[in-house]
């Protein structure tokens, strides 16, 4: 049976992890390679590295980081942040990234999804969608959720699938950072609508939230940051609990 995936997400700036990471027994919490190794050892199924660098110089540092991660990590990983061209993707895949995630650049120029998918195959193109529920409608937001658009979440999800996305990473802005659980209703609708895997993101605060995302939200994978970084949830404990609930996981 195909298992549900648990994916820790690391924010990277200038080749270092940012936002607090509080791991017992980690010599250098800022070193993405060391953190990635720990997560791989603890049973993470994949990793996502989100580049939040502002300058071109910092982006070059990112390439070195990707190379180092590929050298030391034996599970798949995705790199996202600031990717807007075939060249960007080519560089990252050559450094050893397995997948790339695009977000704002796809909204600005949807044809980019077709181009990337034709060139590299849809299996390595993740389209990340940040959306906020305003009254009864979900609207896509850009630039980390700060810029609203008129695009509706479900229309956009269908379009990115048709254009060749291999996966959708859906972050609910309403849930992100709340630790009150994932946006399961929207997730379930998304998962029903598209025929590609959907990764849930935003809102993880407890083991039960992951159970709900898989059982009620029908997510194929769940992504989280702080609950893992601060050791609030241990990945191995989480997976044992999921299995107890008859959710297939890799142990």
């Amino acid at each position: 049976m195909l298992t549900k995936r648990i994916i820790p997400c690391l924010d990277i700036k200038n080749g270092r992890t940012v936002k607090g990471v509080n791991f017992v027994g980690l010599r250098d919490a800022g070193d993405p390679v060391e953190l990635a190794k720990q997560y791989a050892a603890k049973g993470a199924d994949e990793l996502v590295f989100l580049d939040i660098s502002a300058t071109l110089e910092q982006r070059k540092t990112m390439h070195n980081m990707v190379l180092k991660v590929a050298e030391h990590i034996n599970i798949p990983f995705t790199v996202g942040g600031g990717i807007s061209s075939i060249e960007d993707v080519d560089d990252l895949l050559h450094c050893g990234a397995d997948k790339v995630s695009i977000n704002s650049s796809a909204v600005k120029r949807p044809q980019l999804i077709n181009e990337l998918s034709n060139k590299f195959g849809n299996q390595c193109i993740v389209v990340a969608i940040d959306a906020k529920q305003i009254e009864d409608e979900w609207f896509v937001h850009l630039a980390g959720g700060s810029i609203p658009t008129n695009l509706r979440l479900f229309d956009w999800a269908k379009e990115v699938e048709q254009r060749g996305a291999g996966e959708i990473l859906f972050t609910s802005m309403n849930n992100d950072g709340t630790k009150h659980g994932f946006a399961n209703k929207a997730l379930a609708k998304l998962s029903e609508m598209v025929n590609i895997p959907v990764i849930a993101s935003g809102g993880a605060g407890s083991v039960q939230h992951f159970i709900d995302a898989f059982k009620n939200g029908n997510a194929d994978a769940a992504l989280a940051a702080s609950v893992f970084h601060f050791g609030e949830i241990e990945i191995s404990d989480l997976k044992h609990e999921l299995r107890k609930q008859n959710i297939e996981v890799r142990l």
Binding site: M1, L2, D45, N122, P197
Partner: peptide, 13 residues
């Protein structure tokens, strides 16, 4: 077929 999600992505036995 489209009875399952395609691509098949993840860990399987």
């Amino acid at each position: 077929s489209n009875k399952v999600k395609v691509p098949h992505i993840g860990w399987n036995t």
